[in-house]
Amino acid sequence: MFAYIVRRLLYAIPILIGVNLLTFTLFFVVNSPDDMAASQLGEKYVTPEAITNWKRKHGYDKPLFINPEAGGVTQLTDTIFFNKSVRLFAFDFGRSESGRDITTDVATRMWPSLAVALPTFLVGIWVNICVALMVVMFHGTRLDRGAVFLFVALMSISYLFYIIGGQFLVAKTWRLVPISGFHTEGQVWKFLILPVLVGVVAGIGAGARWYRTLFLEEANQDYVRTARAKGCSELSILFQHILPNAMIPILTGVVVLIPSLFMGSLLIESFFGIPGLGSYMLDAIKSQDFAIVRTMVFIGSVLYIFGLILTDISYTWADPRVRLS
């Protein structure tokens, strides 16, 4: 397994270089270093000298990819791309365009992201599986058909509706929890109830329907019929036979998400005022802060690759027949 993991990690390097290259190209297609400087310096009295100074100070006074004035290898290394992107591979994220240390910011902001994403993820899986199993138990009945209809209806509603509706009802009209915010002095949990609730409810439609499909496939297998013939109770069949056998597809969809939980959610964090990494990314895009954007894309890619490796490893735990080589 060790050799397999090492090989997968090595495969990750060209993928990360490609992602970096793509991010860099896309960002600078729409923003020139002059645009970035003008945006950071404000809109009044921006002189060409101020732009030149800003670019020099932030390392944007070089060519993007190839420096024809340099000789040899420095043609490639004395460029914005090399200087800004290669450092990421050493996890040196540098400073944002407004001067803040990105590593410190990421380390600080990942905890609020996790505080929302982890309970949403765990409670969401638990609720989705329970609901799906219940529906499977009544497969073919009116309850099943009604549930599928409800799932499709829930899936069809925009995520924004859940957020704004939740805020309007629970926080504004019923005044049960704060409408938004997050601070660690005192009762952190009261800021988490609503975003977690919204996250879970918004995910039930798609999640439960997906799990229902997986469980139904297993429910028609011979071993289920055998278990039932042996006199096992329905609950025992569901939890002891169907659920373990459906673990491979569940893990495929679930484990890959675990590392990404650190990255937070763009919408939830923005609307609920959670100072996590999701809103960090969104703010960076709005303010044309390339340093943060490239860092977040890089971290996202690394976590995704890590999640895929973790998924492969989890197969061996879920199904002893699987061997990684």
Binding site: Q167, I179, S270
Partner: peptide
Amino acid sequence: FRLEKEVLSLWTKFLQ
């Protein structure tokens, strides 16, 4: 001074 990005939150908290 709290960071408030969304108008609905700002407005609701003001009215509350």
